[in-house]
Amino acid sequence: MSAFVEIEGVSYAYNGRLVLDAVSASFEAGELAAIVGPNGAGKSTLLQICTGLRAPLSGACLYQGREIGHWPRRTFAQQVAFVPQTLQMPFPFTAEQVVLMGRSPFGDGLFESAEDIAAAEQAMAATDCLGFRGRDFRALSGGERQRVILAAALAQSPRVLLLDEPTTFMDLKHQVAIYSLLAGLRAQGMLVIAVTHDVNLAAAYADRVLMLKDGRVEAFGPARDVLCEQNIRRVFEVDCALLRQPDGGVWIRYGR
């Protein structure tokens, strides 16, 4: 029995430049994993391979034992949702319309079903989007947009949620709220994989951490093992100190 999501020796290159070099990792349902690493480490590319947007140059990426490229697109979209960093929207779709787009893998007809509308409603409530549901998506702030995009993915009621820097533009309150939400989804059995450069959020919420640098896996394992001072110094090239909190959590202080 293979893992839920399995990455087997995946390599990828842009214009001959290798950005992923034989990356292997596996993830199980019901865990929250973080992919961390400096800029250009290949985090986003790896995530895009997991969503099926890119096919690996060599190696394979499997979902439930079947190569992602072989899944019918629709069936795959009913189970795996992707949250991009941003969405460049050329047209005046409302926030709610964007969220409802997440339901399109489920409907064949011209109109959304009552079920679709309920799912969207729930997703918007979970991400605190109801207050601006009728506004033009383009007129929202960066953080609000990210919440809408996340809501669209949640409306997909996926079994796997892949997020690319989901909280970059959010204020602190919403960063914390979203990660708590992700932790809650994990508890319900969802596999959540988030790319982030915020090691403290990863330390606080992730069960396991995949650390990438220059397209190679530097470390992969439980968060408290991977996010140690040596790894962070080596991978991020900054000085840092790990501060143990009284409640057992850690706080990584870096820079001055």
Binding site: T51, R73, R74, A77, F82, P84, L87, M101, S104, L110
Partner: peptide, 22 residues
């Protein structure tokens, strides 16, 4: 008109559409 929902997704972005089953 029949494929209009797919065009909504496409208008929002090719990757967006592709990851929503289009």
């Amino acid at each position: 008109v029949w494929s209009a929902r797919s065009w909504n997704l496409m208008a929002a972005g090719e990757e967006w559409a592709a990851t929503r089953g289009v």
